[in-house]
Design a protein around this nucleic acid. Sequence first.
DNA 1: TTAAATTCCTGTAAGC
DNA 2: TGCTTACAGGAATTTA
Length: 268
Amino acid sequence: VPELPEVETVRRELEPWLTGRRIVRASRVEAPPGPKYAELERAAGQRIEGVTRRGKFLLLPLSRGDELVVHLGMTGAVLREPPAGHVRARLDLDKGEALYFQDARRFGRFLVVRAGDYAALPTLRALGPEPLDPAFTAALFASRLAGRRTSIKAAIMGQRVVAGVGNIYSDEALFRVRIHPATEAARLSRRQVARLRDAIVEVLFESLESGGTTFRDYRNVAGGEGRFVARLAVYGREGEPCLRCGRSIVRIVLAQRGTWYCPRCQRG
DNA sequence: TTAAATTCCTGTAAGC
DNA sequence: TGCTTACAGGAATTTA
């Protein structure tokens, strides 16, 4: 599942390739009409000014005041070579090159909006702070968590408290600081909040250094896999021993998501 | 405003 | 082997 490290890995590959390039044609391939590919064709004739990221969203400002917004959803991939199937959109670039957006389960998005106009993207509009930005301090994190009665896992996955954290890294960060994922967010101590902030930053940074996590579907622009899967401590490890205490990792469902934790290290 | 539930979608795995 | 069913989940939408 692409989260911040995976999307940032893709961004870093796209930036040197796409910056300054002209889009000759932008077309839906096997994409039905609908908001997930809204106004895509408008990208034709515009130049790509850069490749930025907010949370799990890729933002490509275009030369005539538009912005190409890309979200990988669950199975989305931005590729340089034509893949075997499930291509939803294609950008034909100058010099005869092309970019392919592949997405088997159709949870991804690939649309053009007026720059900064995120009316159709409420999650992006209300996105929390960037965790790898120095401005993401323990004090800011604490203020965003204040008054939240939901579980700490749902709170950090919700994108409004902090941007870019999804199912894998929320489980991993909570394991690192020994907090049970069902703990009510507002009940964390000041010290726990500070430690959790550090754990989120660390796990995202470490995964980024490994090119992200390929648990099943994630691929980078060259079609390669992320290597962080070998360093996951709890996610997907049901029944396997805890790397810290040896107890079997447990799987529960929390906020409609598979959730893995150590019942000895992370007590309610 | 918050939060929980539901929906979208299809490849994969499990079960018979 | 082949069919049917359950499951995975990010964000939008709906409901409370």
